[in-house]
Simulated assay, not measured.
Amino acid sequence: MSPFNFTHILTQTVDELSDSESYKGLFHLHKDGEPLPSAKVLYDIIELTRSILFPGYYGNSTVNSRTVNYHIGVNIEKLFDLLSEQILAGLCFACDEKCSCTDQKRENAAFLSAQFISKLPELRKILATDVEAAYNGDPAAESFNEVIFCYPAIKAIGNYRIAHELLLLEVPLIPRIITEMAHSETGIDIHPGAKIGTHFTIDHGTGVVIGATSIIGNHVKLYQGVTLGAKSFPLDTEGKPIKGIARHPILEDNVIVYSNATILGRITVGHDATVGGNIWVTEDIPSGARIVQTKAKK
């Protein structure tokens, strides 16, 4: 095949891909001067936030009781600047074509960044309960140090709790990117819209899915492969899924769900209930119940 034929193929492909019909619904019209969300910067934001929440475990390893105030102060300043820019990028990305990147929007992004940072002390308190739950719930865990350093659940739950706070502040897009980063890293998929109480842990973790409208109480433990999903998707008059309705399970306090259980729909698993492994659940479970597979009769 001659070089001319290669050129013809490449040119034809460019023309086909440039046809507006081929990218309809897949093209984001970027406006000059507006920032775009950056996965790399968001990764840095997560690392900074982890170093603030867990000083000495992430970030500068030389931090001690005398220098912790300095290190946290430096990281807070970095976090404020980076997060303000990424929130602005999210706000701009979510705008329609007539929207412009104004000074007011920049001020709003900075305000939201400061509001998020003000939540970090409470986030640390809640994450401390998650670390405690992971340690107490796993006989193989030898220390809190090991849990914080090694357990994928802590990373995934940490990303979720960060993203959830940003979602509560109505920051668009960025929260979902942050939880999907943890999904890629750990195999644990927690939607930032889910509501999760204290002392939450996921043992092993891989394959866990927690849907957007799930509600999880305090002292809940999930094992690998658990799905808290939707049973069905109600459709509108045009046959499209209706957005924003409550469609995922509610798990009350002290619930344990064992590996590969699938719990679907807006049902309630009552407090102190236990759901065994490899079970498909689509109906309410009473408080204190123990649901396991029935043995086949011979």
Rank of each mutant, 00 (worst) to 15 (best):
A296I: 09
I72Y: 01
V63Y: 04
H30M: 11
H248A: 10
V63P: 06
Q293M: 15
N5I: 11
L10Y: 11
E47R: 11
G217C: 04
L29M: 06
A134C: 09
T274W: 02
L53E: 00
K155C: 06
Y43F: 09
L235H: 11
V147K: 03
A134D: 00
E21L: 03
H191F: 10
I117C: 05
P172M: 09
E238Y: 07
R50S: 04
I9L: 09
S118W: 03
H71W: 13
D81F: 01
A140M: 04
E238K: 12
Y57R: 02
I178S: 04
G276L: 05
Y151N: 01
I256C: 06
P55H: 08
G73I: 02
G270D: 06
E238Q: 13
S143W: 07
E283D: 15
L251Y: 00
N136Q: 08
Q104C: 04
H199F: 15
C101S: 14
Q224R: 10
I291V: 12
K31C: 07
Q12N: 10
L166M: 14
V131G: 05
I215M: 07
Y57S: 04
A114N: 02
M181N: 00
A246M: 10
N278G: 06
G205R: 05
I157Q: 03
T186D: 04
E185K: 13
P55C: 09
F200I: 02
V74G: 00
A133S: 12
P249H: 04
I291H: 09
D253H: 11
T179L: 13
S232F: 12
T274E: 13
T201I: 03
L88F: 02
L228F: 07
H164K: 07
K105V: 03
Y23R: 07
L36V: 15
A140F: 01
F144N: 00
V63T: 11
S143Y: 13
K240P: 06
L82V: 02
